[in-house]
Amino acid sequence: MAYIELTVWTRGIIMDKEGRDIVNSVAAAGRLEGRFAQAMENYVDNPDRTNAPTRKYCRVSDSVIENALTYENDQPNIVVLVEQTMVKGWDYMRGMPPGGTLVINTHYTPEYMIRFVPGSERLARLVCVDAAKIADHKWLYYRLGELGLDRLSTEGAAERNNAIAPDIAAPLIAAVVKTTGIVKIETIEPMIANKAAFRAALDQLHIMPLGAAVA
């Protein structure tokens, strides 16, 4: 595990914080473990618009990250789709080296979702987790007023809600950490606001092992 790239695809405004929480918490955990780690957002996806796809990046490395100023993750080892319909329409697998991991927030099974994944031969595993159900997520129509107040888009300002992963990000972080070991569970768990969802997800992952071994 010399250098790992994690790319999160999410939707602007309504699930943007979830995406940020995933990359920020993994990077923070990486640094706590004494490694070099960086989290950032895709510069040109911002400022985010409601529902428009936005990408968040994390890099964790055993040595100093020399490409810290490059805009995008060119070779994501781990890809997370925060919203299940994103499985179609974007080439989120682009650049993934063999042995990658794809995590999708969905109530469908990996056996169903795999048909939509481009370049799935590069995957070592496909992980589906029903994050919305596990986190008891109230979808957009229940939360519009709250989102309007809390989510000042991503242009540098912090959220009013400072909690990390209070919602569907928690099960997704659990899925990433448990299936890839990018950071240790015990390092990242203390940061997670929704610990119940994080713990529950650890036992409710639908993991489909696939052929590609790590290159």
């Binding site: 000042l152 540098g156 300002a157």
Partner: peptide, 13 residues
């Protein structure tokens, strides 16, 4: 105007 916007937003907060 981006990217300065992030500064004015942080100050507004």
């Amino acid at each position: 105007i981006r990217p300065y916007t992030a500064t004015m937003m942080a100050l507004a907060q």
